[in-house]
């Protein structure tokens, strides 16, 4: 009987915590769908706000998606080879590089953004392009790609695997393509998930780096909350959800590790 009491106590607590997290999400979504938030749900449901957001802020959504995908491409091209070199050559220099790479995560985004503006702000063509924001995002997300690929590469015996491939006649590029890349797939996918998510949601650096023509989704969201009706801001959140969730779910599904199976000693005979 005592156990039963404990069970309900735990269940109640879990539900309470879940509610604490989920209720604001539901309320926010509902706020974006009600005619007048201050009157409440009695005022009726509408898609008006969602369309308003779609018409007014569509570009920020596409820019954010484009930006995060561009960021992903750059971090893949830079990050995977970097992680490979760091995994292969363990010395004082590579360890220093590994630490330095994390600096943009530790330094406040505002400081990084200011440094970029002070240094490159006068290159007006660059300053006003989305490439300027991309540089900031790459600085911020690169360590996440390098770290997750490096973690996977350090866990496998990369050196021996490569030696095995070389003994079978594979030169550097075939080895990299057939052995290194497929075996750090899990790290690349996990890193990609982080990079896309972080780039998509990055606010404090982007807020300084953006121009009126290069507004990303989170910057637009801040705009909407600050200058428009609460319903519009909430509808914006809803649109954000609808755009991001399928992307993240797809990446997550890719990144699932395959289960290992039981092994018994047997040969044909």
């Amino acid at each position: 009987m005592k156990h039963r009491g404990l069970f309900y106590l735990q269940l109640g607590f879990t539900l309470l915590v879940s509610a604490f997290l989920i209720v604001p999400v539901v309320l926010s979504i509902m706020a974006g769908l009600t005619v007048n938030y201050f009157i409440g749900i009695e005022s009726g449901l509408t898609l008006k706000w969602v369309f308003e957001v779609w018409n007014g802020y569509r570009d920020t959504i596409f820019l954010s998606i484009g930006l995060s995908l561009a960021c992903l491409v750059v971090t893949l091209v830079l990050g995977v080879p970097t992680a490979y070199v760091l995994a292969k050559r363990q010395n004082a220099l590579t360890r220093a590089i590994e630490e330095l790479l994390v600096m943009p995560v530790a330094v406040p985004g505002l400081a990084t953004a200011l440094a970029l503006i002070v240094t490159y702000g006068s290159l007006s063509g660059f300053r006003t392009s989305w490439g300027f924001i991309l540089v900031g995002h790459v600085l911020f997300t690169l360590p996440f790609m390098v770290r997750s690929v490096l973690a996977v590469l350090s866990a496998i015996d990369l050196k021996t695997l490569e030696e095995g491939a070389a003994s079978l006649g594979a030169g550097f590029w075939p080895r990299f393509r057939d052995i290194v890349l497929p075996n750090c797939r899990a790290g690349i996918l996990a890193g990609s998930l982080m990079v896309v998510t972080l780039s998509m949601g990055e606010f404090n650096m982007t807020w300084l780096l953006h121009t009126p023509f290069t507004k990303t989704l989170p910057v637009g969201l801040a705009d909407a909350y600050a200058s428009l009706r609460l319903e519009v801001g909430s509808a914006y959140t809803l649109v954000f959800f609808l755009m991001i969730m399928p992307l993240l779910l797809a990446l997550q599904a890719f990144a699932k590790p395959r289960p290992a199976k039981f092994v018994a000693e047997e040969t044909d005979q």
Partner: peptide, 13 residues
Amino acid sequence: VGMVFQSYALFPN
């Protein structure tokens, strides 16, 4: 040359 390693070095992928 064919080589066989102590840790086998088989490709998990």
